[in-house]
Write a protein that binds this DNA or RNA. Structure first.
Lengths: 319, 319
DNA sequence: CACGGTTGGTAAAAGCTTTTCTCAGGCCAC
DNA sequence: GTGGCCTGAGAAAAGCTTTTACCAACCGTG
């Protein structure tokens, strides 16, 4: 039996007797034959391998994205190189070169911030590049969460359950997503309350609640927080002051970081950025590009989803 | 210029004029030539690629391990496939097969529990397998944290700062590491206090403190907790009861999960399992095996390290 | 019966490196 | 002057798969 006959039998290609084909397949199965993907890739120019480049050391954003990518591509036989580059341009270049040497079919760049670039230029590679949750280049395909829509979701929910004095406690103003969420907040809630910019920590949430409740006058009846950590800090501060959550004040977070959101007392209603779905779409897109299928460049905003837990109370306006 | 001459020039092999060699290298640099790792791997039987298999979806343990592996292997030109298999045997098999097809030089198996196997048999592969933070097979190389030593570290520290009534609040007893830590706790602290087995959550830590302080009699002056989440719940409960941490009660956690330990009030002194170092050693070991260097099979316990923050107080006994 | 078409299978090339072998030429020594 | 040795470079094989081209045999038909 010649090698080429076996190859054609296994790939259902060429002309040959059905009986021969079956026999080859059976024997291949018996001896546990598996084609060498390296040799196959050498010929087909496809390695069925992609690279995921990230500067998000902690993995808060990368892991769900990775899970989505893997989920979408495992059916296509694609494996994923994960490269954590920690904002080190030299390290990034080493990893990119290593991946290119290994003939990856494409690269997905991801990060921890929508408005920052990875410290390496991926714009003139001869393999397709897709950006996910990080700033892309001109004419690239970029996937990101729709923070405006997510913020609107949260604030409209609060308004829907009857909250009227909604404060917005959030992170540093130089974050693009912070400005976008604040914009949506203003659109829905008006400009009665200022946006409270700070840092992404529990202590900031705690501190700002202290300030708000110490000063005289009417208090907010809802807090829309820029992430779950701030929300947790705020919820803790409220509880310590004897303010009841959610009876007196509703609290909404952002990120749906389970370890924070689900452990808060009470568990946080929060906005989920659907990063896994984002990863899935990024994966399918880089695959499409690798296969030469045309993909429209541009920024795709994926909708967020509100995860309702117990920190808001009220009746759902929709149910 | 023949291809073989160029190859020899670039690899500093074969005999040739120094001038020719230099010229080839210069031109290769100019045109940005990079050898195709697939073709190279086809010949050398080395793909400079390894696989990391994990069932730790959340990445709490996998990410540091991954960082260590990558850190150790990037200098050797090795890239890492990350495969999250979520305890799904079929998915695991798909990933393993895909990696084997791609001729990985080795596989590192990691998980979220020392005493559980991954849902896939890796014992008869023709590539080396190293286990890190998961149960290995007979005659394999396994890296794990030394939980006994870590627990001793914590309890001795508490004893060293003068604590005498040290309670141990921990997770489910069926965890091997729980029993090991409890054993070390008993060794050092004696059997005055029972070990309080429960679950790995903040609420369990909270609840157990409520119980302890509600019942009459002498209270513990230190809590050694099985993980940082339990410690955080306990610290919160103490604060709510007006018990001062660390003045009245010292609290120690386990894991050094920054997002929990550093955000606790006060920030937690905790035991770090040095997972990055564990990953580094696992990476170097799988590389050694791939290169045919002999490695003694067996279980290697890596020491833990105590991270001192503000939840203990007292004077360091060593400084 | 001979020829065209079909069928089932083999041989060979291509993909990119590395390694081993071979070869041509130059130089030295006898 | 010629044989042997050394040097620098090229040819070829190997690694594994896929694809194209090719070939032999067979069948049916004019």
């Amino acid at each position: 039996m010649s090698i080429s006959t076996a190859s054609k039998a296994l790939n259902d290609t060429g002309r040959m007797g059905a009986e021969t084909r079956e026999r080859v397949k059976r024997i291949a199965g018996e001896i546990g034959y598996r084609p060498n993907a390296l040799a196959r890739g050498l010929l087909s120019k496809r390695s069925f391998t992609i690279g995921l480049l990230t500067n998000d050391t902690y993995g808060r954003f990368t892991l769900p994205v990775m899970a989505g990518i893997s989920d979408a591509l495992v059916d296509h036989g694609v494996s994923v190189f994960l490269c954590a580059i920690e904002d080190d341009p030299a390290l990034a270049q080493i990893h990119v070169d290593a991946m290119l040497d290994k003939q990856v079919d494409g690269i997905i760049a991801t990060g921890k911030r929508l408005d920052r670039r990875l410290p390496v230029d991926l714009s003139n590679l001869h393999v397709p590049v897709v950006y996910a949750f990080t700033e892309g280049t001109q004419n690239s395909v970029t996937f990101r969460s729709d923070d405006e829509q997510g913020a609107r979701l949260a604030v409209e929910w609060l308004a829907g359950i009857g909250r009227r004095r909604i404060a917005h406690i959030t992170g540093p103003e130089d974050f693009f997503s912070v400005r976008e969420r604040a914009g949506a907040y203003h659109q829905v809630a008006g400009h009665r309350e200022p946006v409270l910019y700070g840092v992404w920590s529990e202590s900031w949430g705690h501190e700002v609640v202290e300030q708000l409740w110490k000063r005289p006058g009417e208090k907010p009846d809802a807090l829309f927080c820029g992430n779950d950590q701030i929300a947790r800090g705020a919820a803790d501060a409220l509880r310590e002051r004897g303010v009841k959550v959610p009876q007196d004040v509703s609290v909404v977070g952002f990120d749906n970081w389970e370890i924070v959101a689900a452990q808060t007392r009470p568990p946080l209603t929060t906005v989920d950025m659907e990063l896994k779905e984002l990863g899935r779409q990024a994966g399918l897109t880089v695959l499409a590009l690798a296969e030469g299928r045309p993909v429209e460049p541009g920024v795709r905003k994926l909708p967020c989803r509100l995860i309702v837990r117990q920190s808001c109370g009220g009746k759902s306006p929709t149910e």
